[in-house]
């Protein structure tokens, strides 16, 4: 199987338009190029299609309001991801405070045996999305975010490190553990 995963992240081409290219006329293009990535991130972080829809709308509206503040020292995709991550984080925090939600012991995934070199098998059904959501909901939130960002081919390790506020080496180490946690949880949901 020709795997795109083997492609080094550093070699991936990033969207880097200049700030002056982002006039209001370019906003539609910005939405067209990035809405899929932002909606998917919101959907899998919030576990709710309606909330993800609202969040995507709010993220792009914030971006529209702050277009003049975009300095161009990061890619547009990274900038939008930062807004989206903060927005989803705030929504989840507010929701957790209201519902006194507590995560299960997250360290369990570091000791759960799971092979990361064996393929993940899934049937091509409409239930796949539900299974992925269930898996993501079970693993630590940090791992969830790292894997979702890693899944975007346009992001480099450097950008993922910037978005998650840690070093590239830390990201590499955590991604290994995140893959392991995901594989263990995914196999349990079968």
């Amino acid at each position: 199987m020709n795997s795109i995963v083997n492609e080094p992240l550093e070699s991936r081409e990033c969207l880097r338009p200049r700030p002056d290219e982002l006039g209001s006329s370019g906003f539609a293009e910005l939405y067209a190029q990035n809405s899929q990535a932002i909606y998917y991130l919101a959907l899998r972080l919030l576990s709710d299609p309606q909330k993800a829809e609202d969040a995507t709308h709010d993220v792009f509206l914030k971006a529209f309001r702050k277009l003049d503040q975009f300095r161009g020292d990061a890619s547009v995709r990274t900038w939008l991801y930062r807004i989206a991550i903060n927005h989803c984080h705030n929504l989840k925090q507010a929701w957790q405070e209201r519902h006194l939600f507590s995560n299960a012991d997250e360290s369990i995934w570091d000791t759960t045996p799971a092979r990361t070199d064996s393929p993940l098998r899934a049937l091509e059904t409409k239930e796949l999305g539900q299974r992925i959501q269930k898996t993501l909901d079970q693993i630590p939130s940090e791992y969830r975010l790292l894997l979702l960002l890693l899944a975007d081919k346009e992001l480099s390790y450097q950008e993922i490190a910037g978005l998650t506020e840690q070093s590239v080496d830390a990201v590499r180490g955590k991604i290994h553990r995140a893959r392991k946690a995901f594989a263990a949880a995914f196999n349990q949901t079968a």
Binding site: M1, S3, I4, V5, S35, Q36, A37, Y39, Y40, L43, R44, P49, E53, T56, H57, F60, T116, P119, L120, R121, A122, L123, E124, T125, L128, G129, I132, L147, L148, L150, A151, D152, K153, A178, R179, F182, A183, F186
Partner: peptide, 25 residues
């Protein structure tokens, strides 16, 4: 119909591609 994915991110990438953005947004 069974599909094999080499990693979590590959599976997520596939899932993302299958997830349409609601036109209402």
């Amino acid at each position: 119909n069974a599909k094999e994915f080499n990693s979590a991110e590959e599976l997520l990438r596939y899932d993302a591609a299958q997830t349409p953005v609601p036109a209402a947004i």
